[in-house]
């Protein structure tokens, strides 16, 4: 509303900030090639979106596959924590953008450095939340399992993992968000596909309506990804419905 009004009233120059109407028409044309509103980008979206989706989900999966076991290790072993945690806390503070040159040096151009950067960024929220989730497990719950004869593997799979799962899911949601953000950064450089590439290309060729439509679509995909995780959470954690303080 505010956006449409400020453009209509001439507060912002129309060629710099297209109206929401224009942007939605552009997005539809980007996806379906139905009006030509996106100009030379007409119908390009599905291909770029697919490239981004693959990178984001691959990077995310890689991150989670490493972060959950490492997080459980940190949360359950003092020694493991002393060795690994400082390293993680140190790396966590370096902006992931800072890893771009090294990623290119190590992996060259293309999908691999992009996925590596996404995975690196997505690793931290899940590892931190998983270790927190394990650390806050009620000691009596672990003792219950011990007293009922659960061995180390059974304790891990049947007690520690389920008990930490609510916190792990919080980590997954944060990681997914970070993965989308990092994907755009990764696609600015080194690749010739993906929504980040589309956004950067539209910027270089000065097509603000395409830039905004692409930005909006990235937000939308991020939102849908988050909902997907929430949906899985609802399934897996039926016992732990997300409530608010007001119930």
């Amino acid at each position: 509303m505010l956006w449409q009004l400020s453009v209509s009233a001439g507060l912002v120059r129309a060629e710099l900030l297209p109206t929401p109407g224009e942007v939605s028409a552009t997005l539809l044309d980007l996806v379906f090639a139905n009006s030509g509103a996106a100009g030379r980008y007409s119908g390009d979206w599905p291909e770029h979106a697919a490239a981004s989706l693959i990178r984001v989900y691959a990077g995310f999966a890689l991150a989670v596959a490493v972060a959950v076991p490492v997080g459980i290790g940190i949360g359950s072993s003092r020694t493991f924590e002393r060795v690994v945690d400082p390293t993680i806390q140190l790396l966590r503070n370096i902006p992931i953008t800072g890893f771009v040159p090294i990623a290119i040096v190590l992996f060259g151009l293309g999908d691999r450095p992009a996925i590596y950067l996404i995975a690196l960024a997505a690793f931290f929220p899940t590892v931190v939340n998983t270790s927190y989730g394990v650390r806050q497990i009620d000691q009596r719950i672990v003792r219950s399992a011990l007293m009922m004869g659960a061995g180390p593997f059974q304790r891990l799979v049947r007690v520690i993992l389920p008990a930490a799962l609510p916190a792990i899911f919080t980590g997954l949601r944060l990681s997914m968000g970070v993965a989308w953000v990092q994907n755009v950064v990764a696609e600015f450089i080194g690749v010739r596909s993906g929504l980040g590439y589309l956004l950067f290309d539209a910027y270089q060729f000065f097509a603000p309506h395409v830039m905004l439509a692409t930005m909006f679509s990235i937000g939308l995909l991020g939102f849908v990804s988050d909902r997907l995780i929430l949906l899985i959470r609802l399934r897996v954690l039926a016992w732990n419905r997300l409530g608010t303080l007001r119930g």
Partner: peptide, 20 residues
């Protein structure tokens, strides 16, 4: 030397598994 099912424990404020 260690806990085991031959010595069952009931805790104050039940320590049931909330996910089961």
């Amino acid at each position: 030397t260690r806990p085991g099912p031959e010595r069952a424990v009931v805790f104050q404020d039940s320590a049931l598994f909330p996910w089961l």
